[in-house]
Amino acid sequence: MPRLLLAWAAFAVIMLLLPQVVSPGTLRIIIFANFLAIFAMSWDFISGKTGYISFGHPFLIGIGAYTSAILSYRFGVPVSLSIPLAVLATMIGGTLFFLPALRIKGTYFALVTLAFMELMYQLVQVIRPDLTGGTRGISGIKTILSGAVPNFYLSFGLMFAIALALWLLSRTRIGTALDAISMNEEAVSGSGLNTTRLKLFAFMVSALVAGLGGAFYAHYLGSIAPRALFDINFVFTIIVSALIGGSSTVIGPIIGAYFMTFLLEYLRPVLPGSERYLVYGLIALVLYVYQPKGIMELLRKLGVRAGGGRTGRAGNV
């Protein structure tokens, strides 16, 4: 435990010193990576841990983003109030998202969550476009800070706090119980545990994180574009981040998000169109076939080899 905490601290120090060495352009990429990491961690807390695969995470992120944007842009609610309200709204939305999980799992659940996202996309265009901005979305949303460096600190601080909280949470017995659900849900209820309540808890935590991320993201960008938000490519970017990083860990989705962001960014000059997604799909596929547990596991094995073959246990990271 102390060694792992030290690793967290080292990670934080390196990141905090980063603005001294890299350009504002790179910082902006990292800001996006931080937000992607938040979304991937949120996704992983439902899907990586309990095994209920969500294809509709933008539904949750969208509730967070829209609620805070509408409250602050249309009604002049201060951001310090609109963000908590947005998180609350996302958690209420998360309960809706949870309902199908009572009855279905596997592919069926994934498809229903995809339907949630599509539904949300249609709804924001049809219902009260005067509030949501319809197809064009909202622009001119109040930003919290301006400039790459302050926004980098903000996004990193948020991401880091969420990561640390989720990491500590997953080290408790509730983390063990949620992991157990993905392995054998019947045996968890056969151990006298209320799996419905455990799953609801996971969904609420995931919604809280998605809501926070969505709201802060809207206030960072200053705009919401529904077509980019409720987009299957966005869903896949989130899922692939978590998977190639290392699902059911906390560090994994962060590594995955950074990897994905830089990959997409560096491919941009070479492949400006959506062919980029083909390349990342390929990389994800190869990595996933080679090491289903993701980059996290590759690093761990590398660490073990470097440590002279010591079977160091990475613990629940």
């Binding site: 063990t176 392995m183 054998n184 045996a187 968890v188 309540r197």
Partner: peptide, 20 residues
């Protein structure tokens, strides 16, 4: 038998011992 496949023996017992 239906063990939690990714958990060690102690982890499996831990789930059984958990309070609801």
């Amino acid at each position: 038998p239906r063990p939690f496949s990714e958990m060690d023996v102690a982890g499996n017992i831990r789930v059984g011992m958990m309070p609801d």
